[in-house]
């Protein structure tokens, strides 16, 4: 604001003001020819001046994106083809990092763990959040209050969510206290079991994510005009038919958003694994995102870490493109 104020009172502003006055003078002049000549020149001048301002306005942002997004991305591809430890300049080794990763048991296990986590935190999230949203578009007393309360998990940061659930899944914590009476076990090691632990993390991520996607679905559902349903009813459609042939097709943009955003988020999940389990027990929750951190900042193998993140990046792009295509291709099957 202060910068704007200074520039506002600078001489260049006065100059524009003067040219502005010239317009009013020229418009009162008698000959149409002279007027159009001046106006054209003035207009050219004005367009040039305005295009300069456009460039000045976007320049800081573009500079920022070049330095902090585009350059690092290109550099990431380059680094994945080098051996680099931060201490010495990177050494070109071609595709060796990628070839090594194909035989790296930790990485292959990481891919498997990530796949399970992504499946477990996307499909249930889509279905459950949509079902809840369908309840919340009905009219009932106290709806708005319930909606706000449902939103609570969204207010917690990833770190807080991880810490709270670490306590809930403590061997003698809330989860055990609730389940204990039925299983008869005084303590359950939720976070130290190769079968329970991945499920526990999946549960937590669903808990934290469902309310958010519920709100997104509600926004989409509210946007569907009532007339469409009335038309479907007149045509004799039942509830399910109306949902399948009216709601779902019209929700397609929302569906795409939910599917893509949840998948990208699941592929990049980090704090949950880092805080709740540190990837354990015996690597059953070591996702690729965690491995990128480990190789980069514990082993300082920047080249290997960069190669892993390039693979993740390509996976994200491929999955996103497939999802866009499959959500859009439903388009033709419905209509």
């Amino acid at each position: 604001m202060q910068l704007g104020y200074v520039l506002l009172n600078s001489p260049s502003w006065e100059k524009i003001r003067v040219t502005g006055q010239q317009v009013s003078i020229s418009s009162t002049s008698a000959t149409a020819h002279a007027r159009s000549g001046f106006a054209a020149r003035f207009k050219r001048n004005l367009i040039f001046r305005r295009s300069i301002y456009g460039i000045v306005f976007i320049a800081p942002a573009m500079l920022f994106f070049l330095i902090f997004s585009l350059y690092p991305m290109v550099n990431g591809f380059y680094m994945s083809l080098t051996e680099y430890t931060l201490l010495k300049p990177p050494v070109w080794i071609g595709f060796d990092n990628y070839i090594d990763l194909l035989e790296n048991k930790e990485f292959l296990n990481g891919l498997k763990v990530t796949l399970v986590f992504v499946l477990g935190t996307t499909i249930p999230k889509w279905i459950l959040s949509l079902l809840l949203a369908l309840l919340f578009v009905r009219d009932f007393r106290g709806r708005e209050t319930f909606k706000v309360l449902y939103f609570t998990p969204t207010l917690l940061s990833g770190v807080v969510v991880s810490l709270v659930w670490k306590l809930i899944f403590h061997a003698n914590g809330l989860a055990t206290a609730l389940v204990g009476p039925y299983t008869g076990q005084p303590e359950i090691f939720w976070l130290a079991s190769s079968t329970l632990t991945p499920l526990a993390l999946i549960t937590v991520d669903n808990w934290a994510g469902i309310p958010f996607f519920m709100i997104v679905w509600i926004a989409g559902l509210v946007g569907i005009p009532r007339e469409f349903y009335e038309a479907a009813l007149i045509d004799g459609a039942g509830r399910w038919a109306a949902f399948r042939h009216v709601t779902l097709p019209l929700l397609r943009p929302t569906t795409l958003f939910v599917v893509v955003v949840s998948t990208i988020g699941a592929l990049q999940a980090f704090s949950l694994q880092f805080i709740m389990t540190k990837g354990g027990p015996s690597n059953v929750t070591t996702t690729v995102a965690l491995l990128v951190y480990k190789y980069g900042f514990e082993y300082f193998k920047m080249g290997v870490a960069a190669a892993m993140s390039v693979i993740m990046f390509l996976a994200i792009i491929a999955i996103t493109l497939i999802q866009i295509r499959s959500v859009q291709s439903e388009d033709t099957s419905y209509t």
Partner: peptide
């Protein structure tokens, strides 16, 4: 994900 390592290096 892909920016993490190179951004840190930068």
């Amino acid at each position: 994900q892909i920016l993490l390592i190179p951004l840190y290096v930068l």
